[in-house]
Amino acid sequence: MGLEEKIPSGFLLTTVEKLAGYMRKNSLWPATFGLACCAIEMMAVGSAAKYDISRFGMEVFRASPRQADLMIVAGRVSNKMAPVLRQIYDQMAAPKWVIAMGACASSGGMFNNYAIVQGVDHVVPVDIYLPGCPPRPEMLLDAILKLHEKIYDEKLGSNRADIIKEVELAAMNAKPTIEMKGLLA
């Protein structure tokens, strides 16, 4: 950054990764995957009435998964809907991200029974988990902003291969929740 101030105006120095991240995060198009109550809060966010999502360039909820980058799974995913969810995810073109919106999408929520998939991460890989029943529109915007930061920091090329290896190693060595010690241990 210091170099830019010494050269006469008109130059901006950055890295390819940052540029790609900047472009990707600022024009993220969500796919319509509203299922239940969370979908109504998602509509409130997308409808520009009070919680405006088009200030981030995201008000175009694309129906076609080919044109969408972000799948916001909003609502409870039943066993009948799970293959459909996976198919829509597969049809999206990379790069793609998933936000699990609401308690039901993150972990099955209050419905711990035969009909609901206990967490949409059984079906698709999730980037951001958003709790709430339903989460307020501001919470959804916060999740989207956190996703923006995550996208901005994504690496490309050999850096990406390195990061993926690191993350996989950490996941292999991670302790499962039940073996972790809580506050009382």
Binding site: S78, M81, N113
Partner: peptide
């Protein structure tokens, strides 16, 4: 229909 069946009644 049935894509949103949650088993609320049994729950």
């Amino acid at each position: 229909i049935g894509y949103l069946h949650t088993g609320i009644e049994k729950n």
